[in-house]
């Protein structure tokens, strides 16, 4: 996968590739898989945490995913990057969890309500609060839109890479991102200019409704 953080310069490229490690693991090297985990656990954690919005759920999902990858390493086919394959397993573990909990998509009026709810004054909004607000907002999206936005907008993967992870066409990823952003815009617009104290979101909502 080609993400900003994912392509080390040739100088620091590890001597052993992920694919070689996976082959070593399949051939019984007891340390190969742990090296793969070490390389990718932070990114897998970020994807799961952002997709599920809950650390406990994310921990379970990532653990399930790594154990599952450990078991079915033999089914990996070299046409995809190992990271893509790992991401796919993690994302699917997250989506499974969300489906099992049958998370209900949020209706439009609830979104507007959320947008008009009191929000912390932007200049007091610390990093952690922003993070929590973003988490809460993401939870309101349907799972497919959420997964697409996490990969593309939060993790910085290209639409093509996200499409491979999600196993859908690029156009589908784009449209899921577009719809997701449209739903998030009224909720998150107050973060647009953090020094701007006016409640942009409500004004925008009213304008939008009144035409």
């Amino acid at each position: 996968m080609n993400s900003p953080s994912d392509t080390p310069s040739s100088a620091e490229r590890p001597a052993v590739t992920d694919a070689e490690l996976l082959t070593a693991h399949i051939n019984g090297d007891p340390h190969a898989f742990s090296e793969i985990v070490k390389r990718h656990r932070d990114r897998m954690w970020a994807v799961a945490l952002r997709t599920l919005g809950d650390p406990d759920e994310a921990a379970d999902a990532v653990q399930d995913a790594f154990v599952s990858a450990y078991r079915k390493a033999g089914t990996f086919r070299g046409e995809a990057a190992v990271t893509t394959w790992l991401h796919r397993i993690v994302v699917n573990a997250c989506l499974d969890r969300m489906r099992r909990k049958s998370v209900r998509p949020v209706a439009d009026d609830e979104l507007i309500e959320a947008a008009e709810r009191d929000t912390p004054m932007p200049d007091q909004t610390g990093e952690r609060e922003v993070s929590m607000e973003v988490s809460a907002a993401l939870k309101m999206l349907p799972t497919d839109q959420r997964a697409a936005l996490v990969l593309v907008d939060m993790m910085g993967y290209s639409v093509e890479d996200a499409a491979q992870v999600l196993e859908v066409p690029s156009g589908t990823v784009k449209s899921r991102c577009a719809r997701g952003r449209a739903k998030l815009a009224p909720i998150l617009s107050h973060l647009r200019n953090r020094s701007d104290l006016s409640r942009v979101s409500s004004a925008k909502g009213a304008e939008l409704r009144d035409g």
């Binding site: 656990r41 932070d42 990114r43 897998m44 954690w45 970020a46 945490l49 952002r50 990532v62 990093e127 922003v130 993070s131 973003v134 936005l149 907008d153 939060m154 993790m155 910085g156 998030l184 998150l188 973060l191 647009r192």
Partner: peptide, 10 residues
């Protein structure tokens, strides 16, 4: 905002 949201390490 999404891009700027920090992604914590595991």
């Amino acid at each position: 905002v999404l891009a700027a949201t920090p992604t914590p390490a595991m």
